[in-house]
């Protein structure tokens, strides 16, 4: 998403057009939430040049990724990938994707847009998100399955208590139905960010006190083990 990546994109597009590789494709993409009790906010599915990434483990999140991971706002990422001539489907589930639910969409990709990325915030978390990062779309027609892990954007302390979703605002956004499913009165698990770069999420801690304790998250329902999502990609003939 950084400006410096724009130049290689131009070069790569020119190369692929000449070599005949990396042709346009018709994809059907299904994202299934595998978790017991985590909701996914609007999902961004985008096919782009393989030299672009929405995020990189070990690097600081972009402001657009931060807005997605802390508040579920994918508009910034959408604008950024549009500027890179990516092929994008935004919010295929039309809102939250509930635990174990799946959403399916189709995506037509242009020449050169051979890498697939998928992100969505996980609720309730402070800045957790599901991530498929620049996965190479197979040229051979067929159905492919990829399992996604949960990432932490590294932009907000995982205090696990109610708060806001705006970038920089502490706490968990709790839109319905999370309003009913998240506890109250937690004192806060931590106020520190121990790793300010994108990393594999350490998981929710939670507690079993819905009106006090240190966390507003339920430790029996709103935890997870990886993987958290299954992506099925069908490449048409």
């Amino acid at each position: 998403m950084k400006l410096k990546q724009l130049t290689p994109l131009m070069v790569a597009t020119g190369l692929t057009a000449m070599s005949g590789f990396a042709q346009a494709a018709e994809l059907e993409v299904t994202v299934q939430n595998l978790t017991r009790g985590i909701y996914f906010t609007p999902i961004l599915i985008t096919a782009h040049s393989p030299d672009q990434q929405l995020f990189n483990v070990g690097e600081a999140a972009s402001t657009e990724l931060q807005a997605m991971a802390e508040g579920g706002d994918i508009s910034g990422l959408e604008t950024a990938v549009d500027a890179l001539s990516a092929d994008t489907v935004a919010n295929p589930a039309g809102g939250l994707l509930m635990p174990t639910a799946a959403t399916t969409t189709t995506l037509s990709t242009m020449d050169g847009n051979t890498a697939l990325s998928i992100v969505a915030m996980m609720l309730p978390t402070n800045d957790g998100f599901i991530g498929l990062n620049s996965w190479m779309i197979p040229e051979e027609p067929g159905t492919y399955t990829v399992y996604l892990n949960a990432y932490d954007a590294g932009t907000e302390a995982n205090d696990e208590i109610r708060g806001g979703g705006a970038p920089g605002a502490p706490g968990l956004p709790v839109p319905p139905p999370l309003e009913e499913l998240v506890g109250t009165g937690g004192s806060g698990v931590t106020s520190e960010i121990t790793n300010a770069t994108v990393h594999i999420h350490p998981g929710n801690l939670g507690d079993n006190d819905t009106e006090a304790g240190m966390s507003d998250i339920s430790n029996t329902v709103q935890r997870w083990l990886n993987p958290v999502a299954m992506v099925t990609v069908t490449v048409s003939e």
Binding site: G203, N208, Q222
Partner: peptide
């Protein structure tokens, strides 16, 4: 939930589920 899902893992008493009879020995990934 009455829906099959991936398992969130066992919590155990040591990790904050005060009524749990499970211990760290029963945790899995």
């Amino acid at each position: 939930a009455d829906l099959v899902s991936f398992h969130p893992g066992v919590v155990s008493a040591e990790d904050g589920l005060t009524m749990s009879v499970l211990t760290v020995a029963h945790r899995f990934d």
